[in-house]
Structure formats: structure tokens, C-alpha cells
Amino acid sequence: MTFPAQFEFLDEIRDFVAQTAREGGFAEKEIYFLQLAADEAASNIIEHSYEGISNANLDITCDVRGTILTITMRDTGKSFDPSNIKQPNLKADLSERQIGGLGLYLMRKLMDEVRYEANPKTGNLLTMTKRRG
């Protein structure tokens, strides 16, 4: 499915993931967290990869094979190096708490696997998987 890379379409992106997960037999609580992971991933792409670009698209697939749900997101915006994104310090007190990096941190916590490949020809590909509980 192709979605306009705009925050206003996050609702539809979450619905798309929820529908596939529901058909794949995932529990409602798992579906909530899959929606959250997809939202964080799409938000990051819209905010960072497509920074300053308003007419871009985001290609998203969501499939269940056996007990594994796989979400992919492909964009043609700026790529990034996930290893450069600092892990948020969850022990830091209020004044030192970092605001960035939280989305990627949550995606890694919520999913079993998060992979990112930057390719100048085909674009950036994010792949996230989760096994049904």
C-alpha cells in the first residue's frame, strides 16, 4: 500500500497494520503495540527522511506468514545510520531527559527485530518483525 508521507495518514497506516494483524490472529494488546511500532517508524520517516518534502510517498507492506508478522516501509528520502542514534537514557532525571531517539527505541522494544537498509538506488527499507504471542 502506498500512503502519502504525511502525519495526517498515520491513522490509516495504523488501521492497515491492525487489520492484517487481526486477520493473522494477533491479540488486541499485541495489535496496539504493532500499531505503535508502525506509527513510530512512519513518523520518523515523515519527520526525518522526508524533512521539508510534502508530496512524498511511503510504501508499506504488512504480511503474516505462519506466526510472524512483517512490516516493511520503503522511502526515497534521506537515509540515516541507526547506530548513530543514541539510546535514550531512561535513568536521566527530568531536566536531562533527551527528547530524540525515543521512537526508534520503542520500535526496538516493541518488535522482535528491526532492520534498516539504505540503498541509494532503491531507497531506504525498514523491516520489522513480530512473532504472535
Binding site: Y32, D39, E40, S43, L94, I99, L102, G103, L106
Partner: peptide, 19 residues
């Protein structure tokens, strides 16, 4: 019904200001 990290950040920014 739902809150992503965008909402968490709004809460954090406000808590800093309030405290």
C-alpha cells in the same frame, strides 16, 4: 485511546516547564 511518543514528548516538555 492511543498515544505515541509524540504525545510523550509533549508531556515531558510540559512537566519540565511546570516543575
Amino acid at each position: 485511546e492511543y498515544m505515541s511518543s509524540a504525545g510523550f514528548r509533549a508531556l515531558l516538555a510540559s512537566q519540565r516547564n511546570c516543575k
